[in-house]
């Protein structure tokens, strides 16, 4: 009886802002939808996030940020993942993003960008669908 492959997700907060309400709500919701969620806490550098994702061998990384520093930090995460040969990990972002930044964030390789008011079930479904599509 081989176990169903479990989806493992890293939820991290890059940057300096301490608003962890959204990250925690999403982490709990993903757990409740049956995923294994690794929460790394506040004030994470891109280096910390990528190394944690590597060791935990996660399927997805969710980055929550409300400080507006995303356009400095997200490209760095993508770059480091590339250097480790792990661009295959699904990336998604949550937080406050100006409309005009959303296409930029997607261009970096973030498949999902979730702003305020997002439904957590939508996030879980998104992850499941993306992972399934990757096989």
């Amino acid at each position: 009886m081989t176990q169903q492959p479990k989806i493992r997700v890293l939820i991290a907060k890059p940057g300096l802002d301490g608003h962890d309400r959204g990250a925690k709500v999403v982490a709990r919701a993903l757990r409740d939808s049956g995923m294994e969620v690794i929460y790394t806490g506040l004030r994470q550098t891109p280096e910390m996030i990528v190394e944690a994702a590597l060791q935990e061998d996660v399927d997805a990384i969710g980055l929550s940020i409300l400080s507006n520093a995303h356009m400095a930090l997200f490209p760095r995460v993508v770059e480091l993942l590339g250097a480790e040969g792990r661009r295959d990990i699904l990336l998604f972002a949550g937080g406050i993003f100006p409309d005009e930044d959303v296409p930029e964030i997607k261009k970096l390789g973030f498949r999902g960008v979730f702003g305020p008011g997002s439904d957590t079930r939508e996030i879980a479904d998104f992850i499941r669908a993306e992972i399934a599509a990757r096989g």
Binding site: R31, S33, G34, V37, G41, M48
Partner: peptide, 14 residues
């Protein structure tokens, strides 16, 4: 119930 888990021990290991 759900098979999910919320793992927070890394916070201390960073």
């Amino acid at each position: 119930f759900t098979g999910g888990a919320l793992l927070g021990d890394r916070i201390r290991m960073m």
